[in-house]
Design a protein around this nucleic acid. Sequence first.
DNA 1: TGGACCGTTGTGCGCGTTCACAATACGATG
DNA 2: CATCGTATTGTGAACGCGCACAACGGTCCA
Lengths: 339, 339
Amino acid sequence: METTTERRRRATVKDVALEAGVSRGTVSRVLNGQPYVSDEAREAIEAAIAKVGFVPNRAARSLVVQSSQAIGLIVHEPHSLFVEDPNIASILLGANAALSEEDYQLSFLIADTSRDVERLARYLSGGLIDGVIIVSARVGDPITRAVRDLALPAAFVGHPRDIGDAPYVAIDNRGAAREITRRLADTGRTRIGMIAAALDRDSGADRLAGFVDALGADFDPRRVESVPLYSVADGREGMHRLLERMPDIDGVFASSDAVAAGALEALREAGRRVPEDVGIVGFDDSSWALRCDPPLSTIHQPAGELGRAAAKAVLAQLRGERIEAPIMLDCPVVWRESA
Amino acid sequence: METTTERRRRATVKDVALEAGVSRGTVSRVLNGQPYVSDEAREAIEAAIAKVGFVPNRAARSLVVQSSQAIGLIVHEPHSLFVEDPNIASILLGANAALSEEDYQLSFLIADTSRDVERLARYLSGGLIDGVIIVSARVGDPITRAVRDLALPAAFVGHPRDIGDAPYVAIDNRGAAREITRRLADTGRTRIGMIAAALDRDSGADRLAGFVDALGADFDPRRVESVPLYSVADGREGMHRLLERMPDIDGVFASSDAVAAGALEALREAGRRVPEDVGIVGFDDSSWALRCDPPLSTIHQPAGELGRAAAKAVLAQLRGERIEAPIMLDCPVVWRESA
DNA sequence: TGGACCGTTGTGCGCGTTCACAATACGATG
DNA sequence: CATCGTATTGTGAACGCGCACAACGGTCCA
């Protein structure tokens, strides 16, 4: 043993059996709540378990039943974004709640560097994880590939195009973006631009598509400024560039609340008033939305529910059920003061 | 098997051995990089591994070597706080980086409800986790007790009083609080109050102690408003109460940036200008600090480094090293515009 | 009294690894 | 040529558990 603290040998079923004066099989039966064990045997065993401080070895159990009662939630993101994004935490909590109800343990796995990705793939294939929830995957993501190769029960939050018919839970990003952009127009804005972030993933691309839909014939690619991440810094940068190209801009659709928060800073720096001079709307209804000044009009993204639904989808697969249709969740517009 | 997709039987060492025409022992040797295996055997085995798509079963390996190359990071927090707290994410990332370097997998475990706590304790004792990093434990925390009972290598971030001589990594909350409060006084504030959050944990209590230190003879318990959580809502609530009791207040030490953000809202609602009428300082230097208007003067908490150091402490214990002294990290004052 | 049946219990095997040991082959050395 | 050491390999046991099966003792009915 490698600790200095001389870790004492753990009690095993055999110890319990010995202590209780029964056989391993009987102990195993009470452990798993199976029938055919007499009351006196059960009591003796329970007493013995308490006495020797027995706790089943999960590795051994996993080995024989080929499952570990643990499911992973994988986030493949660069550092910075994860720290800033409150959505991920909510998804995590929602998934945990659903799993907890069925006595599954959630294990949150993060893939940061490419080295992480490799190690993670090994870990997943090691049999210590029964299924996975994958958040914010990109098209061509190596994690996605690894999961498919392992035929591991999985559910995606969001919908990268290359996951085949794997179950996913999502919102209608495109429709929501269309709706919120339209209402921006309905309130009288005529020179509307967009800061489009994360075009390399489905949510980003779909939000842009919704924007294009809404503008219809008025659409002009010069109205869109693209930035890599859903981050405050990128939002600010994007807004600055947009202001330069459209000095008379009077409406902005930022593809996330964080992006909107950055845009708000840029607008303030440029001396524009919100919502008087320019109206702005975000996406997510994260804690950013209320924290901004003025509070953001945005799309409510049910992050907790997404996590919960994804978890349930994985559990269903574990039970052998087949998930046919994607699970789509509602995401209403929340109208506040920024537009 | 429980999946509908007919998960194919995984290849085992035996399959590889058969394919390569050698014995299990030899396969095991190349798998673990041990000496005494001929070049031709090694090549044959590597080819066989690739051919049959072998990947070692971790449960089986864990069973015999009594270790799993995975360490847990436990956060025991009610929902809301975790979602709001950017520190936790940074700690997580720091720990992950350190573990990744030694090829350990980080598994993030959250304990939300009391049911979670129980399940978590079972999970930890199951042998699938070699050690744990514990964040934000309270005194008397059942998780702490479970970990001690298991004699699991552990490291705490922060310093609950009842962890005995378990290794921990922390900052000098008391000293930092003292320092920042003093500078509040040095800039001419004379009627200074504090919003003290989370007094049930060491960080909260120590920050209050530092405040008391700084005020010295001027201290009066009526200057302190206590709230349960490091949250924006509680900060706002606390500030409102403080304003009521000290209408002439001209300086506030909020025990975290989130609390300060809430206080800022309350001050704005009360029509006080910051920093002209009242100066305010926070604690953490989280993303809140820069996001507030005006930007917060605060204490820089090296969250990523805390996580990294805690991870290293756990790994050291796994190697059999004994961690004598607590690990203390620097936390400089960051002076901005809110005071 | 014999057999069928039921509840209850014990036993052996296998899950996929690693590890210690024995066994083998080969060359070098006396 | 016998002996020894060294490099390499195979084999059995063990890790802790669940499961299938056999075995036991008793009750009930014919």
